[in-house]
């Protein structure tokens, strides 16, 4: 195997594809926004040249597809130029979504691990719960999100918790499935060895099952943290666009503020990327601590 070079195998191809995408985006923006410019020109009774159309499509107020630099300008404007406490600051909205995501992810991960431990140690639980855990993954659980929000609002629980509950629900299944697999990953030989050491179930758990489940845990945590962000965003939709990235999306779609939608979308993407990266770093840190070779 040839040594992988960072420049040739990573940076170059990825940046080429990204640049290509941005170029396609610009062309698409010009193409999609052009009809509006032609309409305005026709209504004003003036001829409009090609170069002018292209120039105008890059700076429309409410474009069909905003040009990349418009989105970047909007993100910069709403993050750096607004006070963080302001309702127009994207950081404020991102924080609202992030707090719900993290709370839900925390509860979901803890619950998932506990349930997985129960499933591994109790046969009845395994047989009766596991098929339902798997079946529940095939159910579009996000569909319940608005109902949970509205119902909990009706009995006086509002704010962070309902959204976090949706994130919990979504993030908990990948953790259960991954952890059950991980806690069962020690081979019979290893379990037998623990047996010959006369290890108690607790010792077997902490010294063998738990450490060997770590790779599985972190893999499912990555999925779980991404999906809890989705849960939090969708959870913000039915509350009537109060605050959060989901609310920004909904408000943007109500008022035709496409630039705002794209800015919120990119913020959500950045948030997801950072969260997944943090879990990834924790993963490699834990594996290193356990003495795994990179």
């Amino acid at each position: 195997m040839r040594e992988q070079s960072f420049l040739k195998d990573k940076l170059l191809p990825i940046s080429t594809v990204v640049l290509l995408l941005i170029a396609v985006w610009y062309v698409a923006a010009a193409f999609l926004n052009a009809p509006f410019e032609r309409d305005t020109a026709a209504r004003a009774g003036t001829e409009i040249g090609f170069s002018e159309i292209v120039r105008n499509t890059m700076a429309q107020e409410r474009p069909v597809l905003p040009a990349p630099h418009q989105v970047v300008a909007e993100i910069w404007d709403t993050t750096a130029n607004k006070a963080i406490t302001s309702k127009r600051s994207l950081i404020y909205h991102a924080w609202i979504t992030l707090s719900a995501t993290l709370l839900g992810f925390g509860i979901g991960a803890a619950l998932g691990v506990l349930l997985a431990v129960g499933i591994v140690h109790n046969r009845a639980m395994d047989r009766s719960l596991m098929p339902w855990v798997i079946a529940s993954q095939t159910i579009p659980i996000l569909a319940i999100a608005p109902m949970i929000i509205v119902v909990l609002n009706a009995i006086g629980i509002a704010g962070l918790l309902p959204k976090a509950l949706i994130s919990t629900y979504l993030s908990f299944f990948p953790v259960v499935v991954g952890m059950v697999k991980g806690l069962r990953s020690p081979e019979t030989i290893q379990l037998d060895l623990m047996h010959t050491y006369n290890a108690s179930p607790a010792q077997t758990f902490w010294k063998l099952r738990w450490p060997s489940s770590m790779p599985y845990l972190f893999t499912s945590l990555k999925v779980a943290v991404a999906i809890s962000l989705v849960g939090a965003i969708v959870g913000e939709l039915p509350t009537g666009a109060v605050a959060g990235l989901g609310a920004r999306l909904l408000a943007g779609s109500y008022y035709g503020q496409t630039v705002q939608i794209w800015a919120a979308l990119f913020m959500a993407a950045a948030l997801a990327a950072v969260l997944v990266m943090i879990v990834g770093f924790a993963h490699s840190a834990v594996l290193k601590r356990m003495g795994a070779k990179p």
């Binding site: 990573k10 990825i14 990204v18 991404a226 990327a273």
Partner: peptide
């Protein structure tokens, strides 16, 4: 090499957000 990391990245994103667009 260019598309695969990008695809993996997009899979983790809240793609559902494109719905209003």
């Amino acid at each position: 090499k260019g598309l695969l990391p990008l695809g993996n990245f997009v899979s983790a994103l809240p793609v559902i957000g494109v719905a209003p667009i």
